[in-house]
Every structure is written in structure tokens, then in C-alpha cells.
Amino acid sequence: MTELAGTAQDTGRPTQRSQAKADRRAALLDAAASLFSERGFNGVSIEDLGSAAGVSGPAVYRHFASKQAVLAALLVGVSERLLDGGTRVEDAADDPASALRALIVFHVDFAVTEPDTIRVQDRDLDSLPGEERRAVRRLQRRYIELWMRVLGRLHPSLSPDELRMRVQAAFGLINSTPHTARVGGTSVDAATVRPVLERMAWAGLNAH
């Protein structure tokens, strides 16, 4: 008799148990971004993280060895996602101008959808152990260099120092969204924020 194939392992699909574990890990990281943003890394306990994600404090250790490991997964993970996403954007573009516009849209989308992560990175990066902190810095440098490469193709006369300065200034503008996208104490709708940031970033990167 021939056995029927098609288990999750046979097809490469996650099992129900592994998917549930991945979902719980993602929920913990989402909770960490929100709580670290609101209270700071030192103001949040393992029990706080577990409660926010719907599990007990000790259950957090099934996914992360420590609170610092949660922070590392959050910040290293977002740096990897930015670099991977930026690389895909660059590879898919037909020309430098299209690549730069697409990178701006990509990074603005990150800023308006993950403001908590930006706040945590700005404030709590130094709470990471040295190795993880260096990993974040390396990924950030590669992401900056990707933007410099694209901008340099569009403006070949610019020096590396000026390319770097323009890119970092654009990041400063876009990443200020979590702190500045409020008028009179009221949050500004993302649909309003996006085109303004995209126009300003484009103008700053291409200033004469």
C-alpha cells in the first residue's frame, strides 16, 4: 500500500505547533516594541512583556533567553529587514531615479508603520550587549551604503562624504516622524504624512 504524502514537513510548510510558536514570538516582539517605546527598556519587566503578549512571564523564556535577547531580536531584526527590503528595491528598479524614489517610499512606509521601533532604537540601542550592538551598526552602515550607491549613480559628481551626509539627513527627516507627526497634540493621519515626507526627502537628497 502506498502511503499518502503531504504532511507539513514533507511540503516544507510549518506545522501547527511551529506556526503557533512563531506567532507567539512575533506577538512578544510587537509587545516589546510598544512597551519599550512607552517606558524605556529599563522600565519593562519580563512579566510585563508576557502579560502584554498573553502569556506568563516565565513563558517568555521559551522564546528568548533574556530581556536583552528580546531587544536584540527586535533591533537586529528590523535592521536586517531594512537592508533586505532596500536591496530588493534597488534590484527591481530600472534606473537610479526610480530606485531612489522607491527607497524613499520604502523607508517612509517603515517610519509611519513602525514608529515604536524607531523610538526604541533611538533610545535603547546602547542597552544591547556589545556583539549585538555592533551587528546593528554593521547592518545600518550597509543600509546607508546602499542608499549612497543609488544616490551616487544619480549624482556622480558628489563626493562620498556628501553622499553620506545627504542620506543620513534624509533618514533624520523620515525617522523623526514618531516624534514630529503631531499638530496641536493630535496625531496627523499617515495618508497626510507620507507624501509630505516623500517630497521633502526627495528634495533634500537632490538639492543643488
Rank of each mutant, 00 (worst) to 15 (best):
A93V: 04
L103M: 07
V188H: 10
A135T: 03
S98M: 05
F110Q: 07
A53E: 09
H179G: 00
Q68E: 13
R39D: 04
P195C: 09
T113M: 14
L146P: 00
E131K: 14
L128N: 06
V55W: 08
S45L: 06
L49F: 10
T180H: 12
D94M: 05
V76K: 06
A69T: 08
T7K: 11
D10G: 07
A203I: 02
V105H: 05
L197I: 01
A99V: 01
A69Y: 15
V112F: 13
Q9I: 00
N175E: 14
S127K: 10
E132N: 07
L83Q: 09
G130P: 01
F171M: 12
E131P: 03
T87P: 06
L82V: 07
R123Q: 05
L35M: 07
I144V: 11
H107G: 05
F41R: 10
A27L: 12
H107S: 10
L71W: 12
V183W: 13
L29A: 02
L197E: 00
H63D: 01
G50H: 11
R142K: 11
P14A: 04
G85D: 07
G184C: 08
S45W: 07
T186N: 06
L71I: 07
A190W: 02
A170Y: 01
D126F: 12
T192S: 14
I104S: 04
A31P: 04
F64R: 02
L146D: 03
E90R: 12
G130K: 10
L125V: 01
P115Y: 14
A92Q: 13
G12S: 11
E131N: 13
D126E: 13
G185W: 05
R137P: 02
T2C: 09
G130F: 08
G77Q: 15
D84P: 03
L128V: 01
A22I: 00
L83S: 03
A181W: 13
R141D: 10
A99C: 03
Q9T: 01
Y143E: 00
L158P: 03
N175L: 05
